[in-house]
Design a protein around this nucleic acid. Structure first.
Lengths: 331, 331
DNA sequence: TTGTAAGCGTTATCAC
DNA sequence: GTGATAACGCTTACAA
């Protein structure tokens, strides 16, 4: 506090914190303080403040890939929402790497962020449970771990998978391939289960070699599509489990000179700004990204502001089917 | 420091900071300290550390729109690069709003970030100059302000605009419309100037009513395209000054049932993952996003680490023309 | 209505 | 080899 100019120290603090009323500080003094603060371009040191108050008004955000528009959209909303409540965001990209994620968690803890929002990667979750049980505010987004008590905001991926498959089936498709992301991850598993359920309900036999892939990346979509179309019996439709995967599929299709939907139909998870403008406007399963972001911040804030003793707050949002032109009616 | 367990305080600090050697602390003590730290899950408090050392190992990043893949890509690289050097990123989305940007600058300063990376919006820059001249490390990305001494990393937008127009001209186009972003902003101005220069060199008269638009948004691209095609003499080609604008153009074209490149040719600024997979694979002017991010961090770090007294470090990167199928040879 | 002083968790300086 | 102690800039009892 560089202003022992006239009067002194704690009075200043009080004025600057709007506690003038409370302490019945004279109008006069208030004005002088405020003016001096202006003149000296005084900016409070949040570090010292944080140290004393044991809070930083900062929340950590860990996501697998900020360049993926799906996460970028969520991050945008999170940032807006957080800042409107007076919080800053420390952005961390885990690069789809679980070890990195664990390291980040510790680093953020050491940074004394008030809470952490994380879209976890990989299959382990003990580090998250440990953190949560230690009382640190954490909210999981995008994924969740069943049978583990952890607060989360996610999409109903089972329903999404089910809707996608049902849509294809109702258009006459029976040989529906599925190019998946990380096999063990919960969103992936749920989407697959939704897909399987739809097949089952319609008495369509499952063909194991139509469920392929191992990553949410474009490359995976590309490679698996090439492989799929080297089978003796090629699929009539593909269900892509992420936006990046469907981009890879389209790339492969162009190279093989296959037309969508004439040669095969396509439904993809994740709506994107360009979805409607692709060679063939794509039918997608959209997640409520903005809502995920908004809720994530609000739920986290409830944990930060204390209270929240009971069961973890968990929210599952409906997915939305956007019908466009990448699905052909067959038979 | 919760470890006055056996021996005491500063010794512990020394061990934990790897200064054991330097202070010739006994092997024995070292081990005990390290072990205790483990057991107690001790995490150093960066706030206190920052307060004492007057640095936070944090850098502020202000961008206009993290949901725009162009910025998301840059942000990704910045985050990676920064963290590899031991810095965290505080992400701020200014929402293309200059007032917000000014506010953010102050907030970040108050947070004691070690430096700021900013992709500014709007036309004013006094707040940036003030900050820089006060000695605070700042590096501008994406845009720059000529005639103002400020460090920046940007693309050679003039060259990009020139290349785009020249490419179109060499394919026989003469009526080339230009849907621009924010008219006064430097990247926009440079791109337009590049375009004008190409026209001039080829003795093509400038038609003012072909240079339209006022925002880097999709909506602007859409609206202006509709307007452009309601002119008596419609253009044979459009040069879009951003990725979002070209998406809007495509949307309008679909609605008007115009084919690209049969009915008009298109070149767009900004390469995107989907550029090659659109209805017509799009010819783009690509910026070296990753390189921008890498350099931005490295330059900023030079300012943070002191030195850097002379002229501001300024770097302008070449743009790249990706020829695809959205341009038709005419005449 | 205003001032004094303790303390948040570190690191640095100096002493032993 | 190790331990006190001051200081970083702030908030907040407690005094005056």
């Amino acid at each position: 506090l560089a202003e022992s100019l006239k009067l002194s120290i704690s009075t200043v603090s009080r004025v600057l914190n709007g506690k003038a009323e409370e302490f019945r500080i004279s109008e006069d003094t208030q004005k002088r303080v405020l003016k001096a603060a202006q003149d000296y371009r005084y900016t409070p040191n949040s570090l010292a403040r944080g140290l004393k108050l044991d809070k930083t008004d900062t929340i950590g955000l860990i996501i697998p890939d900020i360049a993926n528009p799906f996460f970028a959209d969520i991050a945008k909303r999170i940032e807006q929402e957080a800042r409107s409540k007076g919080y800053f965001i420390i952005l961390c990209d885990s690069g789809e790497n679980q070890e990195e994620e664990v390291k980040l968690l510790h680093l953020l803890e050491s940074r004394k962020v008030d809470g952490i929002l994380i879209a976890p990667v990989g299959l382990r979750f003990d580090h998250l449970v440990e953190l949560y049980e230690s009382g640190y505010p954490v909210v999981i987004i995008d994924r969740y771990f069943p049978a583990v008590r952890l607060p989360y905001i996610t999409t109903d991926n089972f329903q999404g998978g089910f809707d996608a498959a049902r849509h294809l089936i109702s258009n006459g498709h029976k040989r529906i391939a599925c190019i998946q992301g990380i096999p063990g991850s919960q969103p992936n598993r749920d989407r697959i289960n939704g897909y399987l359920e739809a097949l089952k309900k319609n008495r369509i036999p499952v063909e194991e070699d139509l469920i392929v892939g191992d990553s949410f990346s474009e490359e995976n979509g590309y490679v698996q599509t090439r492989l799929l179309f080297s089978l003796k019996k090629t699929p009539t439709a593909i269900f892509a489990l992420s936006n990046l995967i469907s981009l890879g599929i389209i790339k492969a299709a162009m190279e093989m000179e296959l037309k969508i939907p004439e040669d095969f139909s396509l439904v993809s998870f994740d709506e994107q700004p360009y979805s409607a403008y692709l060679g063939t406007p794509m039918t997608t399963i959209e997640q409520q990204k903005s809502e995920i972001g908004r809720l994530a911040v609000n739920v986290l804030l409830r944990y930060i502001q204390g209270g929240e003793n009971g069961n973890p707050i968990s929210i599952m949002l409906k997915s939305i089917l956007n019908e466009r032109k990448s699905v052909k009616k067959i038979l």
